[in-house]
Simulated scan of single mutants.
Amino acid sequence: MKGIPISTILITGCSSGFGLASATLFANRGWNVVATMREPRENILPPSDRTRVITLDVTDPQSIAQAVDAAGPIDALVNNAGIGLLGAVEGTPIPVARELFETNTLGTIAMTQAVLPQMRERGGGTIVNVTSSVTYAPLPLLSIYTASKAAVNAWSDSVAIELEPFGIRVRTVLPGRAPGTSFAANASDRMDGAIPEPYAPRAERVFAGWQSDTGPVTSADDVAEAVWLAVTDNRALTHIPAGADAIALAQAR
């Protein structure tokens, strides 16, 4: 393989779940991987001279600039960093809603803005935005989370047309319910006060459903494979469902 350039991918939110699985997959398949997270941990990825773990907070402009500069030329960006929320809209404080949009929506836009100049100058690149299958089939008590991800879907569709003349592709990956990841824990951390008493019985059922591993579900490896497809296959769909449940929802539309 000497003389053949190795591509570099930067993935946000790699401390666990989808991001960690995607970083591991790309490293195992020969890519240079820049795995980012707010609080880097040693030995989170298998030892390799192709991987780097660096600090990144997608809500902090200075952190973004430093991470992109440290990464060097980036051929693919995966906007995976995100947080969950399970709560009734009536009981969710606006600062909590704002936190979701700052990370899930504006963080994606900010990261994309940071890498676009170098991709445009080189005449190519791929941007993959990880959203959610709840944008196919909305569920109760997930309205603000769903809105933050649906906004990214719509934004991706528009910016894909905008960037096509520069050889830059934009794709979205839409995972299904993934009980083995940190979504439920992240969501429960923000539930305090967001579930008024009249909503509590239903919230318990919805939360239990998200945590259950029965029925069709999505694994972190499912998402990693979908991200691989989005990055490496020029024929891939603009929106790629990941996981058996997400695929079924997409087919039912």
Rank of each mutant, 00 (worst) to 15 (best):
Q66V: 11
I83C: 12
I4T: 14
A21S: 14
F166R: 07
E164N: 11
V128M: 03
A110T: 03
A150N: 06
A137G: 00
E121Y: 02
Q118L: 02
N153Y: 06
I64W: 02
N43G: 13
V130N: 05
I9T: 06
N43P: 03
R122F: 04
A114W: 01
I6M: 15
R171K: 15
A178P: 00
P140W: 01
T218C: 15
L10C: 08
E42D: 13
A97I: 06
S22E: 11
T55E: 15
I168W: 08
G209M: 08
A220Q: 07
V206I: 15
E39V: 08
T131W: 06
K2M: 12
Q211K: 15
L56E: 09
N104Y: 00
Q66D: 13
I64G: 03
V34I: 15
A97W: 03
P73E: 11
I11Q: 09
G91M: 08
A154D: 07
V159L: 12
S212K: 06
T103V: 15
P138E: 03
D192A: 15
M191E: 12
N153C: 08
P216S: 13
V53S: 10
A23G: 10
P40S: 00
S48Q: 08
D69E: 14
I127F: 05
C14L: 06
I74E: 08
S133M: 11
V33E: 04
I44M: 15
A160L: 00
N129P: 04
N32H: 13
A81N: 09
L237V: 02
L56Q: 09
P40A: 01
P179F: 01
A230D: 06
P61R: 08
S16N: 13
P95E: 12
G107D: 09
T36N: 04
Q62H: 12
S133I: 00
V89E: 10
A151K: 07
N104V: 04
R122W: 05
E42V: 04
D60K: 05
A226Q: 05
L77Y: 10
G13I: 09
R169W: 07
S143N: 13
F183L: 12
T172C: 14
G3V: 06
D192H: 14
A244W: 00
A244H: 03
R122A: 15
T232L: 05
A154V: 12
F166S: 12
N79P: 11
L116Q: 01
I247A: 13
L85E: 11
P40W: 02
P140K: 05
R235V: 00
P140D: 04
S188F: 07
A226G: 10
M111Y: 02
R52W: 04
A220E: 09
A151I: 06
